[in-house]
Amino acid sequence: MTSRVSAAIEAAHAQDRGAFVGYLPAGYPDVATSIEAAVALAEAGADVIELGPPYSDPVMDGLVIQEATQVARENGFRMPDLFTIIREVSARTDVPVLVMAYWNLIEQWGVDRFADDLAAAGGAGLITPDITPEAATDWISASERTGLDRVFLAAPTSSDERLEMIVGASTGFVYTVSTMGITGERASLDAAARRLVERLRTFGVEHACVGIGISNAAQVAGVVDYADGAIVGTALVKALRDGGVEGLSTLARELSAGTARRA
């Protein structure tokens, strides 16, 4: 089965640009606005959307995303809402929707049940930030059965052996972590990201998208100079918080403009 995420990245490349991957917390600030925000993100130029269900212990998330997920939880978000949001967004845009979720949420829901519900809602796949391929055999089997993409993370500290395993197990793209630590905006991106993408290329990675720390069009342009796409989260969440869906759309258009490949 053809990967919808890979197809979206290839479509961006055919337009001589890198892919723009945008993250939003599912259900923030509430379910209805979350749907409108994701659709607006797609309409503003995102090639792939990531939706993160709120979690009680978001160890990888920076303060902006932690606060947003807390608001979503306080406003009544429950896991079934995730599939409602994906279903509504997928009905209104062709942009593939990935879920980025802590593994405990998937286990609690049931791995096969989650895969079935995600596929039924029109989701494209799952990003698993806190589980490695060798510990994810159940999810790999479920994703192969349902045709969902599985995106694993690669870090600058990963060994060559681990990178080779991550490349072999991932579909859609490899989530390439630009800096170690929690998500959030950085004044400048770590040069380690470029080196990490080079290492992934040696193991035959199809698509490597760089995330964590990208917050403006200039940084997007810098990343797509060597990677297949740029992932933006915190800056988008902040724009939604401060300017509503309109503010989010404005920033997303600016970020999308940064994806054009330089001659």
Rank of each mutant, 00 (worst) to 15 (best):
A40Q: 08
L240R: 09
E10A: 13
T137N: 00
V111S: 02
G243F: 06
R241T: 11
W103Q: 07
T234L: 05
V97P: 05
T33I: 07
G45P: 05
V210M: 00
G204Y: 01
D112T: 10
A142T: 15
M79G: 14
L196H: 09
S249Y: 05
D190S: 10
L163E: 12
G229E: 03
I140M: 15
V223D: 07
A26N: 14
D30C: 14
A37G: 11
V71F: 07
P133D: 03
P53R: 07
E107P: 03
F77S: 09
R4T: 07
G258C: 03
V71W: 04
R87S: 10
A11D: 08
H207N: 12
Y28N: 13
I127L: 13
V59G: 00
A38R: 02
L98H: 12
T146G: 09
R150I: 01
V5R: 01
T250A: 12
T176E: 11
P25F: 06
D190C: 01
P96M: 09
L118I: 06
M165W: 11
E36H: 12
A230V: 03
G147I: 08
A192L: 05
M60R: 01
I214K: 06
T250Q: 06
V64F: 05
W139L: 15
A154I: 05
Y23K: 03
R162H: 14
A142E: 12
L98I: 08
L105V: 10
L98T: 11
L251S: 06
R73W: 07
Y55G: 07
D116R: 15
E246P: 11
E206N: 04
G247N: 10
D225P: 00
S256W: 02
K238H: 06
L148C: 06
F114G: 13
E161G: 15
S158E: 09
E144R: 14
G147V: 09
R150G: 00
R162F: 08
G222K: 03
V167T: 09
T157W: 06
T84S: 13
E144H: 12
I49D: 02
G122H: 06
L153Y: 11
E43Y: 05
V111E: 02
P80V: 00
R262C: 02
L189I: 11
F203L: 04
N75F: 02
F152I: 08
G52H: 05
V167P: 03
H13S: 07
P29L: 04
G52A: 07
D228Y: 06
I65F: 11
A135Y: 15
P53W: 03
M1Q: 13
H13K: 09
V220K: 14
P133Y: 01
T157G: 14
F20I: 01
T84K: 13
L200Q: 00
W103K: 02
P96G: 15
